[in-house]
Nucleic acid binder design. Sequence first.
DNA 1: GTGAAAGCGCTAACAG
DNA 2: CTGTTAGCGCTTTCAC
Lengths: 373, 373
Amino acid sequence: MRNNGRQAGFGVIGTMNRKPLKHRVTLARVARESNVSVTTASLILSGRPECLAQFQQQTIDRVRHHAKELGYRANLFASSLLAERSSFFALVIQGGHTEDLRGWQYGAYESELLYGVTEHAPPDTYPVVATSGPKISEARVHSIERIMAGGVFGTIVRTPEPLLEKSLRERIKRGYPTVVVFPDQLDDWPENAIDVDNFAVGQVAGKLLAARGCKRWLVLRDAEYHAGQRLRQEGNRDVAQRQGASWDVLELPVGSESPELDRMVATRMREDRPDGMFAMTLRAAAATVAACRELGIVMGSDLALVGCDVAYRFQAPDPSITSVDVSWFEAGGEAMRRLVKMTESGESRFKTVLLPPRIIEGQTCPVPPGGIE
Amino acid sequence: MRNNGRQAGFGVIGTMNRKPLKHRVTLARVARESNVSVTTASLILSGRPECLAQFQQQTIDRVRHHAKELGYRANLFASSLLAERSSFFALVIQGGHTEDLRGWQYGAYESELLYGVTEHAPPDTYPVVATSGPKISEARVHSIERIMAGGVFGTIVRTPEPLLEKSLRERIKRGYPTVVVFPDQLDDWPENAIDVDNFAVGQVAGKLLAARGCKRWLVLRDAEYHAGQRLRQEGNRDVAQRQGASWDVLELPVGSESPELDRMVATRMREDRPDGMFAMTLRAAAATVAACRELGIVMGSDLALVGCDVAYRFQAPDPSITSVDVSWFEAGGEAMRRLVKMTESGESRFKTVLLPPRIIEGQTCPVPPGGIE
DNA sequence: GTGAAAGCGCTAACAG
DNA sequence: CTGTTAGCGCTTTCAC
């Protein structure tokens, strides 16, 4: 008494013997209703003028009418299967910033990156998104690997987690177009990466201070600093030397926060009396603002301050901070452009791109009328 | 002298006469190298124990070995095509917050939503993401429509743009599982939407003030207020009345910003001398903080303030603001759960869900030890 | 234990 | 001008 799920009294087309798929609106269905073949329907609905040219207006109208009535849309997966390159690429970004209340704003950067990517994606190209995070699970890694190799035409990854890095490199080696945005260790990515030009960041900050005529510079960096901060520092010192300005560094101990940090900065400022400061991190800039408040220093006139990635950090009555940073929107755009270029050329590598920094003017260090340099 | 792109001296399998697809690593290839049929390879690589049981260990090892060596991953699009429900769903979020510097932080919310969605997605299920925005183009709308109906098993949309709304409703009518998160006009979405319970937001804020023993309440809302703010207001008044507290409203004119806004609030505070305030928007809360600074009022002791969605807005030396809001991560999770439930049950509608608000404690209004209620 | 073959929805080459 | 058909990569019956 086997039934096999076959629908009784139902015109069974073909010999398929499993439960009928939810009656999807397929091209075949549109063609059937319009009394044309699938080819005709396909060609007409493709919309290309050279295709439309060969059909009678009447046929065109009929097919379009039925397609609209049925709410037909081409199945992108079926199309992707056939196409030389699918309509999908993988995008791996970071999630979970909210758990740490201090880091919540980074979520905004991820959004910006995503938006930059989607805005620069070719028409009818879509990102399949996966989120990676600090405590990424094995299963998640597997899932990301699946999508990276599961038919997409390329992958954009923001700061790959160590667990992911291995398979990422394997993908590249196998010739899959891949772009890494803001890798943690830029030195490990001489190819296929996009990052800020940190040396230029330091230079631009320096030029801003130079333009204000600053002569006693103080730079704030983390005690444990990575390649990025070292480059910023070198770029900055480079300008200071050419400017004939004194240049000194204050290292901020890791883990130290407001108000100890503020006091530490204030103490140093009282000693050195700098007229120009470059804060390489958000907490450094915040501590400087707090120190100035304490010391009664008016930022922008007594002291020029340039920060990094702190443009948004403004709240009355504190002054807005002049910031040198990179647009994540642009970074996303650049990543997308590179990905497209690779798929078009068939290459799977490109020399790592360093994006020029941008200045977001704040009150702590006005930009000279003509800009810098 | 036609060549037709046929590769000379190359074993042409089948009669296909177009340029050979980039040699992908397909199941067939793995099968060939392993000297088994595609069926065998498929079953073995599916990993299901009941399938593996019927093969010799030797065969299994061989197939696995070659799959690994070739870097084989199943093409998810091909799988999706065959499956009852595809592995993909559409997720439409908002982008372009950065253009307006004041609104940049909203990008963080979008991220949180995305993360909530992906974290609650079933294994091996991926979002195909599209970004919509304020000045969305025709082409973009079309693109989003394509993906919404192009084979995904459902769609999650955050605050659909008017241009999108029509096709969204059509999708729902046609039975495609769809979830709207935070619609602008909740009244228009008695079904298929997820939003905060704004009445509860007002109530919770009220209970916090009540717990502090406040007797003279002042509520700040926008002059042009929408359904959400009205509900917050009603929920709040409800508690005030039961508490026997006086309850009054100050309407903030649209477009007015700091410092005029601050002054307006300060003036009213000087007149009314409220001991409890409920600021329904970010700018209202910010203006209150500024007013207190001006008036020398110590928040948290002289005055209790509860805001909405302002938990993150903290910068020394201002006090952190106690905030009643909703977790966008949770909202994303709930949306995903609903979507999955709909696809499983075959339904395409559900009664709109109102999420309970959460409290993020700040210094402006401590939460009583046992919580509220 | 293993393989052949159908078919998911679509496109494009080719034939009429 | 329009239809037939092969095949994209995969899963799933069913037969040997």
